Amino acid sequence: MTDRLPHEKGFHIAWDQIHRDSRALAWRLDGRGPDDGAWRAIVAITRGGMAPAMIVARELDVRVVDTISVKSYNNQEQTDAVVLKAPDSDLMGDGTGILILDDLVDSGKTLELVRKHYPNAHFATVYAKPKGVPMVDTFITEVSQDTWIFFPWDMALQYVEPYRGTDA
C-alpha cells in the first residue's frame, strides 16, 4: 500500500477526544454570553459543528439549537463557501447572544461568510488553523496549516502505513 492522501500530515481525532475537547470549549464559553453570561441559542455549522454543538449545548444547558448549512469543501478540496440553509431569522437577528459553533476553522472562509450575516454572534471552534484564527473568537487547540484533521465521523478502522519508511 503506497498511495497516500494528498495531505502531508494527519491528525486523527477519536470520539472521546472530540468529546473532551468540546467540553473544554464549553467550559471556556461558560458565563461569556451577553445575557448574564448565558447564550440565547447555539447554531451549529453543518455538518462538522453538529457534534460539538450538541456537547456544548448539554454542558451549558442551552435548549435552543439550530443549524446553518455551509458548503466549503468538495470531498477534501476547498471551494467557495455557500450557505445552503440558514437558521431561523427571528431567532438570529444580528447574532447578538448567539453562539455559532464549528469543529474546525481552516482558511476562515466559512466563518467569514457566516459572520457577514451575523456580525454580533460569538464564533467558536474546537480546532483552529493559523489562517482561520482571526475569524474565530474562541477555540481550544491550534494545529498547523498543513495538518489534515480526520474526525471520527469521517473514519473507519483500517491499516495505515507508517509516516516514514515501510520496514516492518
Rank of each mutant, 00 (worst) to 15 (best):
P130H: 10
F150W: 14
D102W: 01
L101P: 07
E112T: 03
G93K: 15
P130M: 01
I100R: 10
Y127V: 10
K109M: 01
A121H: 00
I149M: 12
D103E: 03
E112Q: 10
A128R: 01
D94C: 11
K129Y: 08
V126C: 07
E112W: 10
L104K: 12
K131E: 05
T96C: 14
T141H: 13
G95D: 12
T96Y: 15
I149L: 10
F123I: 08
M135D: 01
D103C: 08
P119H: 09
L113A: 05
P134C: 14
G108K: 02
H122G: 03
I140C: 11
F139I: 06
M135L: 07
F150P: 00
A124V: 11
G108Q: 04
I98A: 12
D106G: 08
T141S: 11
E142I: 12
T141A: 14
Y118W: 15
N120E: 14
M135T: 09
Q145K: 01
H117A: 12
M135I: 00
D88P: 06
T141C: 03
A121W: 02
L113S: 02
A86G: 02
S89W: 13
F151M: 10
S89G: 02
G97A: 15
S107T: 04
K129H: 03
I100V: 14
H117T: 04
V143Q: 00
V126A: 00
P119N: 01
D103S: 10
K85Y: 05
Y118G: 01
D106K: 04
D103M: 06
G108H: 11
L111I: 09
K131R: 07
K129P: 07
H117S: 05
G108P: 03
D94L: 13
A128M: 08
F150S: 11
T141Q: 14
H117W: 08
A86R: 06
L101V: 09
T141I: 14
T147I: 13
T125D: 09
I98T: 13
A124W: 12
S144A: 10
D88N: 08
H122M: 08
K109F: 02
F150I: 13
S89L: 03
G93F: 00
N120C: 11
Y127Q: 08
A124H: 10
M135H: 09
T96S: 15
L104G: 00
T110Q: 05
N120H: 13
K131A: 05
G93P: 12
H122W: 14
M135E: 05
I98R: 14
P87W: 14
T147L: 09
V143D: 12
P134F: 12
G132P: 02
K109G: 01
F123D: 05
A86K: 05
Q145R: 03
S107V: 05
V136H: 07
A86E: 11
F123M: 13
F123E: 06
D94E: 10
K109V: 02
L101Q: 05
T125H: 12
D94V: 13
R115I: 04
K116P: 01
Q145W: 00
Y127A: 04
A121N: 14
I98K: 11
G132I: 08
D94I: 13
I140G: 03
G95R: 15
G132K: 06
T147D: 13
V105M: 07
K109D: 01
T147Y: 14
F151E: 07
V126P: 02
S89K: 07
L104T: 11
H117C: 09
I140F: 15
I100Q: 04
A121M: 13
